[in-house]
Amino acid sequence: MRTPRALRSPGGAAGAATVLVLVAAGLLAPWLSPYAPDFQQTGAVLRGPSAGHWFGTDDLGRDVLSRLLYGIRQDVIIIVLAVPLSKAIGIAIGLLATTHKAADVLVQRVLDLKLAFPTVILGAALAAFLGPGFSTVLIVIVISGIPVTARLTRTAVLTERERGYVTGARVVGASRTAILVTHILPNAVDALVVNFVMSAAGAVFLEGALSLLGFGIQPPAPSLGGMIEKGLPYLAEQHWGVLAPIAVLTGLVIGLNLLGDALNAALRRG
């Protein structure tokens, strides 16, 4: 693993720190937030920042900071559920493609089909048939991450297979599955870690985009994208209701991208 080295680069360190702080804030939301995320305070609608409400209140008198923390938590939950699932399916499909020529052709065609679907269009189609909400966001993120992972796995396996140690193992008489699991996969882990981090950034981005289109997580549950969408009509009156989630969302996306870049660079330097 070259991961620790990646953190030594300034970009990698900054990215990791940003992501760490934000994720920690999200996970600690129940202890950090001054109010319940859905508590509506009577007579305090669209207030600007104050000592009681650091980022002010939204159109229903709810504390923006508290919703923000719970919103991060929601996005983290989505990442934790969707990205590994997406990777697992992607890896499985990628491995399937390396087993047989016919399987390879089939997999490539199916991946082509997915690539022809822009992700937001996929989101629209799913939202139409499943209804908007958490599960739709989850499925869109899972599906959107599959093709790249599958291709990456396929290429990695095909490349590694030609390496000396695999040929060696084969000569010794190891089974195909054993070779795959004990030799090839561990060597592809680094590439997948980079891919994982990049997909997490993509997930945060997608949650926001789907919310803006009205396909995202539904009220009263807070999410970063949902806060942006609900706050937009009041941008002129209470811009903190939008700026705060925007800053966090952008911080997460950039942080994860920086981290991914640094990991990638460390990986290439070998």
Partner: peptide, 12 residues
């Protein structure tokens, strides 16, 4: 729908 969000809170 916005009034409904207040109603939802009231019922809770």
């Amino acid at each position: 729908s916005k009034a409904a969000e207040i109603v939802e809170f009231n019922l809770r």
